[in-house]
C-alpha cells in the first residue's frame, strides 16, 4: 500500500519541511537522505533588492519533488484563503497545507477559522490538507467540507514533545479509517515518528527535528528508517500489551521442573 493524497500515490511516508536548514546544500542533502517525495514551502513578502524568493525557487526546482505550500502565520480564514490563492498561482498546485493559527504560544490551529477556510477553498477546487488537532468534531467538519486528508498535530510546532495525546490520536485514527491522516508538528525523535506510524497514521510531516539536528542528513535518514519501520510494524499487526508476564519459552519439559514451585 502506498500513501494516498487526493488520489496520487507516494512511496515515501515522510514529508519534509524546507525551513531552518543550515544551508541550501544541507537542505538538498537532507531531502535526498529522507527519501521524501513531498516538501513543504511557504510564501513571504519579496524584497525588490534581496529577491530571496527567486533563488529559493531555483533550489526547489532542482530537488525534483512535489511541493506542498502552506499558509503559515495566517490568523483568519480570509488571510488563509488569500494566501492559498496566491500559493496556487505561485507554485502551480491545488494542494494547500491550510494553517489558521490561534495564538503565538501554542501555534494551535484555530479550528473555527480552519473549517471556514477549508470550505471556501474546497469549493474553489483546492485540495486542502488542513493542519488541525485531534479534535473529532473539527475533523468531522473538515471531512464534511471535502478534505480527504487531515493533518493533526502531535504537539505544538517545534516543541519536539511527540504524541502528547496518544489516546486522542488513536481515537481519531479509529474514527476515520479511510481518511489519509498525517501527523504534522511536534515530532522531535525518530522513535516518536515510529510510534505515530505504529498507531496506523499514514505519514509524518517533519521540519525542525531534522533541520535543527546536529547532523541533519543523518537525522533525515534516521526518520526515514523509523517511519518505514513503524509502518511495517503497523501492517504486520502489533500484539496486545498485557499486565503480567507470559513465558515465551515452552514451559512443558522444563528441566528440574517441580509442580510445588508453581505459584
Amino acid at each position: 500500500m502506498m500513501l494516498d493524497i487526493y488520489g496520487e500515490r507516494f512511496t515515501s511516508r515522510l514529508l519534509l519541511g524546507t525551513a531552518q536548514h543550515p544551508s541550501p546544500t544541507a537542505l538538498k542533502n537532507a531531502v535526498a537522505a529522507s527519501s521524501a517525495e513531498i516538501v513543504t514551502v511557504s510564501l513571504r513578502r519579496e524584497s525588490a533588492r534581496a529577491r530571496a524568493g527567486q533563488g529559493f525557487w531555483e533550489l526547489i526546482e532542482q530537488l525534483g519533488v512535489r511541493v506542498l505550500p502552506n499558509t503559515a502565520g495566517c490568523r483568519t480564514a480570509k488571510e488563509a484563503v488569500a494566501t492559498a490563492q496566491m500559493a496556487r498561482e505561485l507554485f502551480g498546485t491545488a494542494w494547500i497545507k491550510l494553517e489558521v493559527i490561534a495564538n503565538d504560544d501554542t501555534l494551535q490551529p484555530e479550528l473555527f477559522g480552519l473549517v471556514e477556510a477549508a470550505s471556501i477553498l474546497v469549493a474553489e477546487g483546492f485540495k486542502v490538507l488542513p493542519y488541525t488537532t485531534e479534535d473529532l468534531s473539527a475533523a468531522e467538519k473538515l471531512a464534511g467540507a471535502g478534505c480527504t486528508v487531515l493533518m493533526p498535530w502531535a504537539s505544538p510546532i517545534g516543541s519536539a514533545r511527540g504524541l502528547i495525546n496518544r489516546d486522542g490520536l488513536k481515537t481519531l485514527r479509529a474514527y476515520f479509517p479511510e481518511t489519509t491522516l498525517i501527523i504534522d508538528a511536534g515530532i522531535g525523535a525518530p522513535s516518536q515518528a515510529a510510534e505515530a506510524m505504529e498507531l496506523g497514521y499514514d505519514a509524518v510531516l517533519l521540519n525542525t527535528a531534522v533541520a535543527k539536528a546536529g547532523d541533519p542528513v543523518k537525522m533525515a535518514q534516521a526518520f526515514a528508517c523509523a517511519i518505514e519501520a513503524g509502518r511495517l510494524g503497523f501492517e504486520a499487526g502489533l500484539i496486545k500489551p498485557r499486565d503480567m508476564a507470559s513465558p515465551s519459552t515452552p514451559v512443558a519439559g522444563t528441566p528440574f521442573f517441580k509442580i510445588d514451585r508453581v505459584s
Binding site: 519541511g17 524546507t18 525551513a19 531552518q20 536548514h21 537542505l27 513543504t40 514551502v41 511557504s42 510564501l43 513571504r44 513578502r45 519579496e46 529577491r51 530571496a52 524568493g53 527567486q54 529559493f56 525557487w57 526547489i60 505550500p69 502552506n70 503559515a72 496566491m86 505561485l90 507554485f91 510546532i157 521540519n207 525542525t208
Partner: peptide, 10 residues
Amino acid sequence: VEIVAPRQGG
C-alpha cells in the same frame, strides 16, 4: 499591496 515569492516553510 502584498507582493510575495516562494520561501522556506514547514
